[in-house]
């Protein structure tokens, strides 16, 4: 009995020792030398493999960064989810200075809610924007607007976009959005745009993509940009952030100072902002009306 235990312990021990020796030598011999900096960079990256950087996963991006650093610069590379802080950290690891890039976020550019752009037909098929887009102009009849089938929701790895049940339009949750651009790529009508978050999160954009002439656009959607150009005129002369092209206004985020003056002048309320717009300028009233005068007087008296 003792002998059996002894023999088996010895023989198994020998086998184990032999196997570990083999493993040890193989591990030594076939070891893949990897730059230790790749691991360090990959640790800083969020690890969500969202593809926002344009490389296959976070590790692929880390490898690219290290290679780029060896060539002297990692300028132009950005991990949208982690932001400029992480890029600065990576820069430190790789011994390079990195300029901070402005934080950005996704913005949906369609205001065709159920009320403003009533559905005229019913789509019956797979719940995919790409399929519906290839078939027809959509239930609302607007060939530029959101179809509300949620390809963007499926594409988002961060749960930062959802379809509002009332309006049937996508809504971006700013806190969660990392502006990786997956929704921008997937949207067949390109109504989602990556724009700078803006100072104090103040940003203004045209909430429409319609290139139709005013009357045709208004026919399908009451919130359409009709290309009237009022906002262009309203924009301060020094700034001129708004341009009108093909019956559609566009606010250049680089120039826009988010003063909000254009918002109240839009006849279709197609300009959207993340803040309360300033009160509209009081219209110059006819001279015959004495009331403003008296009011002013009253005010003056009070001040006295």
């Amino acid at each position: 009995m003792d002998g059996v235990i002894l023999y088996s312990v010895i023989s198994l021990g020998l086998v184990a020792a032999g196997a570990s020796m083999i493993l040890f030598f193989i591990a030594k011999k076939f070891r893949v030398e990897e730059d230790p900096r790749i691991d360090k960079v990959a640790d800083i990256l969020p690890g969500a493999n969202c593809g926002g950087c344009g490389y296959p996963g976070c590790r692929g991006f880390a490898e690219t960064l290290v290679k780029a650093a060896d060539n002297g610069s990692i300028e132009g590379f950005n991990c949208p989810p982690a932001g400029s802080e992480a890029m600065a950290q990576i820069g430190k690891v790789l011994g390079l200075e990195v300029e901070a890039s402005e934080p950005t976020t996704a913005v949906v550019r369609c205001g065709g809610t159920n009320e403003l752009a009533p559905r005229k037909t019913e789509y019956d098929g797979p719940s995919k924007c790409s399929v519906s887009h290839a078939l027809f102009s959509g239930e609302k009849g607007c060939p530029y607007g959101c179809m509300g089938l949620g390809d963007c929701v499926v594409s988002c790895s961060f749960g930062a976009i959802y379809i509002d049940e009332k309006t049937m339009l996508p809504v971006v949750i700013d806190e969660k959005c990392v502006s990786c651009g997956a929704c921008v790529k997937v949207c067949p009508r390109k109504i989602i745009e990556i724009r700078p978050v803006g100072r104090k999160s103040r940003r203004v954009w045209i909430n429409c993509m319609s290139n139709d002439k005013g009357a045709a656009a208004m026919k399908v959607c009451k919130a359409a940009c009709i290309g009237c150009g009022k906002c262009v005129k309203e924009c301060p002369e020094k700034i001129q952030a708004i341009v009108l092209d093909n019956f559609l206004a566009y606010i250049d985020p680089k120039k826009c100072i988010a003063c909000g003056k254009c918002i109240p002048v839009c006849p279709t309320k197609a300009i959207k902002a993340t803040f309360e717009p300033p009160a509209p300028k009081p219209k110059p009233k006819p001279v015959e009306n004495p009331e403003p005068e008296s009011e002013k007087k009253d005010q003056d008296e009070v001040n006295k």
Partner: peptide, 8 residues
């Protein structure tokens, strides 16, 4: 003008 698919 919109054709059968709704596109102009």
């Amino acid at each position: 003008v919109a054709d059968g698919s709704g596109y102009k």
